[in-house]
Design a binder for these strands. Structure first.
Lengths: 308, 308
DNA sequence: CGATCTTACGGGATTCGTAAACATA
DNA sequence: TATGTTTACGAATCCCGTAAGATCG
């Protein structure tokens, strides 16, 4: 039994049931009256049942037609609501996107991007996982995140990595500290001072160790949070080296920061996505914005404006 | 926004989501693969959103397509169930019909008709109102009955009457009674004996009075129920005259019945329907059977077989 | 006889299937 | 290279609108 049923037929049926006139219903459907008549006949033929009693002067639903009115109305409503929901997604009026990224990006750079994004698409729910690279990748693998920005390149069967931005490092020392002035400090210069390290779980430590080899920095202590680094350095206990992206933590008159150009002392941030699943429209839109506002891009985003 | 959505599109969409292959889904839809491809493209264009990510080697729903699967499945299920319900009505597998008719018809003639009808259409619910003509017509007017068989002709704006059958009258007397034999009795013959009348509320009384004018029958008593008439006559208290259709009440060796051919002593039974509303398929089917099995028709119905 | 639904019919759009081109693993 | 999707294209079908016909009040 080849049942085909179209939304137009349902709309025509309801229009006829409402107006009880082929002429008026045809007008309501923007059709000529004979075409409308054929549409109704097609519906009736498809069902194998007469839905309207028509004499030239009077049109009324048959008892069966009457019974179908409610069902048709409901059906059409649901179809339209389903399509509306889909079109809301297409138009970015609704949706959801989950982003996993490094805490440094999440705190300093992301807020401005999201502010723009949210203003453009207020209906889209955003979930942010501000985690280190490893958890970010797990979130992506498990499907809880759509996109990840992490310092680890993972280009596997499941995941696809593309370069996102580079992150340089800055020296942080108290204002007036000897390292704050003069020619750009070398590893040996920094090694002369007590150094506040970030914990090993952060990828930063690995970059530092690699870039200072064969020298070893003079470790004063290891801490987990950048805020702690700031406090220690500000108190004059030592100096530190932190990624440029985290500099917003150190915006303080008592502190001085200066860029370092040591060989190898730069890290790559990768944008990671699942290979098996495309991005939702919302994720796509956010992806576009992330790229447009990537640190170091020429496009001035609100994040840059706020940052300085 | 001209949303048109057809069941074929939904079926195609679901087939593709299930099989994840244009080729297999096209086969499932009995279409060539390019035609199927165009169908999907038409759906996507109509929505304005890509529903599948396809590379030549892999087909998978986009996140939005994924979200639509459930809605589409539900929509299609409901559409099919609505159509099935309608086709059940068309095929007389389901439905409902309400018939209002005189108690005499309801008890004697109707059961056989309904037995046949029910056997042919077990899924159709039947409601019988066994009432006198007046209530029958009220039921029809109020819409609680689809068809009425009554002794009153009502041909108004609302109701349409067509002749259904004629009903003659029989004399009822005890076996061996003088009126049981000899030439057909005339009114004056019957007037010589005590007579058991049916109550005035029955139309029978009016026909009797009219047919015996200017004579008046010798009224012994008035009762409401035919069973009471039978009891009285059987006890030898008097004789009576009853419609032929009620003769099944008097099938008793102690009683004798014989037809009367008095002028005017015949009543017309009318089949009444609403003028504003067509009959449902179930009512239509019953209507056909009522006519086919009408008393006096050549067609032998089960009612006739049982009646004798 | 007038309003309204149905039928008839020519033109245009849609949709089909076959065949060739194209793309990815 | 082989499998599977898209594009190209001619043919059949469907659908629409105009015009004529039928029917009921």
């Amino acid at each position: 039994m080849q049942k085909n049923l179209s939304a137009r037929q349902l709309r025509a049926f309801l229009a006829l049931a409402d107006t009880r006139s082929f002429t008026r219903a045809a007008a309501a459907c923007h059709l000529s009256q004979p075409a409308f008549s054929a549409l109704i006949r097609g519906l009736e033929d498809g069902i194998g049942l007469r839905l309207f009693d028509r004499s030239t002067r009077h049109v009324a639903p048959t008892p069966e037609g009457e019974a179908f009115i409610e069902a048709a109305r409901q059906l059409l409503t649901q179809a339209e609501s389903a399509l509306d929901a889909l079109q809301d997604l297409a138009a970015l009026r609704r949706g959801r996107v989950a982003l996993a990224l490094l805490p440094s990006l999440a705190a300093g750079w992301l807020p401005g991007v999201l502010a723009d994004f949210r203003q453009a698409h207020p209906g889209i729910e955003i979930e942010v996982f501000d985690q280190l690279s490893e958890p970010c990748i797990s979130l992506l693998r498990s499907g809880r995140a759509d996109i990840a920005l992490a310092a680890t390149r993972v280009d596997s069967d499941e995941l696809r990595a593309e370069p996102f931005c580079r992150d340089d490092f800055h020296l942080v020392c108290p204002t007036g500290h000897p390292l704050a002035e003069g020619p750009p400090p070398k590893p040996k210069d920094v090694a002369a001072w007590p150094f506040v390290h970030l914990s090993r779980t952060s990828s930063v430590r690995q970059y530092l160790d690699a870039a200072t080899l064969p020298l070893r920095l003079h470790t004063l202590m290891e801490v987990d949070q950048l805020a702690t680094v700031k406090g220690m350095v500000k108190a004059g206990l030592g100096v530190s080296i932190v990624p440029t992206l985290t500099l917003f933590h150190f915006d303080d008159p008592a502190l001085h920061t200066r860029p370092l150009r040591w060989r190898g002392l730069t890290r790559q941030i990768w944008l990671l996505r699942r290979r098996d699943r495309g991005l939702s429209q919302a994720a796509q839109a956010l992806h576009t914005r992330l790229l447009a506002a990537r640190p170091g891009s020429t496009t001035t985003s609100r994040s840059a404006a706020v940052g300085h």
